[in-house]
């Protein structure tokens, strides 16, 4: 179980990127963080990955406080970030240094098969398309068998077809080890396709606005009514999250009422 308690992040220049984030993610759950730009989604992910330090609050994995990168936490970035001097095979094996050669080979070959790139094992990343590169990046994160996998808008730079096929590859890999997944996205369809729960965030400072459970059975039918309903619910929540200074009109009305009273 991944727990975020009262997490906040204030950058050196005083920007409040995140304020009092509380989130509990069950083992094996796929949670999607969704929200407009600048609401701290990526910052939150970088904190969990240990690439940045939180200003306050704690991140715990199965009760153990995380400080810095942890072997049980993997991340896939927005860009593939493959190492251009390593073959596809070696890129996937990058995090398996501590494992013996036969086991490493077996794991990488299995992952290559899963993402459908077995015949490309010996090629350079530059020879792959953007979608293939991102598949390699996902495989690189999965082969270490992390307990928590963080995905930072990994499909945002890809076209709709490629994205759909990558969703399948991702779920295929996820089925095997069932890690906890935290997926950052700004694509509502994507959130409903993949996640068990959508967490809608709100900007300035970044905080959690609402949580919506997505209980649709898998595999999910993207044309069905339940899917549409879920998408609409998230869109509504997003809409509200962006125009929430709702207390403002309320207070204004109070003041007017007070004026009348006098």
């Amino acid at each position: 179980m991944l727990e975020l308690e009262h997490l906040s992040k204030i950058y050196a220049d005083g920007t409040r990127a995140l304020s009092d984030i509380n989130l509990f993610v069950r083992q094996g759950e796929i949670v999607s963080l969704i929200g407009g730009s600048g609401c701290g989604k990526t910052t939150l992910l970088r904190l969990i990955a240990g690439l940045d330090r939180a200003s306050a609050g704690a991140i715990k994995l199965d009760g153990e406080a995380l400080s810095g990168p942890h072997p049980s936490v993997g991340i896939v970035f927005q860009e593939p970030r493959l190492l251009p001097w390593l073959s596809v095979f070696d890129n996937i094996a990058f995090g398996l240094d501590h494992i013996n050669a036969t086991e490493r080979k077996a794991r990488v070959e299995h992952a290559l098969e899963k993402i459908g790139l077995s015949e490309h094992a010996g090629r350079w990343p530059r020879d792959l398309s953007g979608g293939q590169q991102q598949r390699v990046a996902i495989a690189r994160a999965f082969v270490t068998h992390p307990k928590v996998l963080l995905l930072d808008e990994p499909f945002s730079a890809l076209d709709a077809f490629t994205r759909a096929s990558l969703h399948e590859h991702l779920l295929g890999l996820w089925e095997e080890t069932r890690p906890t997944v935290v997926l950052v996205t700004h694509d509502v369809q994507e959130a409903v396709t993949l996640a068990d729960r959508a967490v809608v965030m709100q900007p300035k400072p970044g905080r959690i606005f609402d949580e919506l459970p997505l209980t649709l059975s898998r595999p999910r039918d993207k044309t069905g009514l339940p899917f549409e309903t879920s998408v609409r619910r998230i869109l509504t929540a997003l809409d509200h999250s962006l125009n929430t200074p709702q207390q403002q009109p309320q207070r204004e009305r109070d003041r007017q009422a007070a004026a009348l009273w006098w």
């Binding site: 240990g50 690439l51 990168p69 942890h70 970035f77 970030r81 001097w85 240094d97």
Partner: peptide, 27 residues
């Protein structure tokens, strides 16, 4: 910096970071 971060994610030591990421990138 993005490639160096990959090294951080996989918790490479300073020496390994130099050997596995900095050295090839600099070649």
């Amino acid at each position: 910096r993005k490639l160096v971060e990959v090294g951080h994610v996989f918790r490479l030591s300073r020496f390994k970071l130099a050997r596995r990421i900095l050295l090839p990138a600099v070649l």
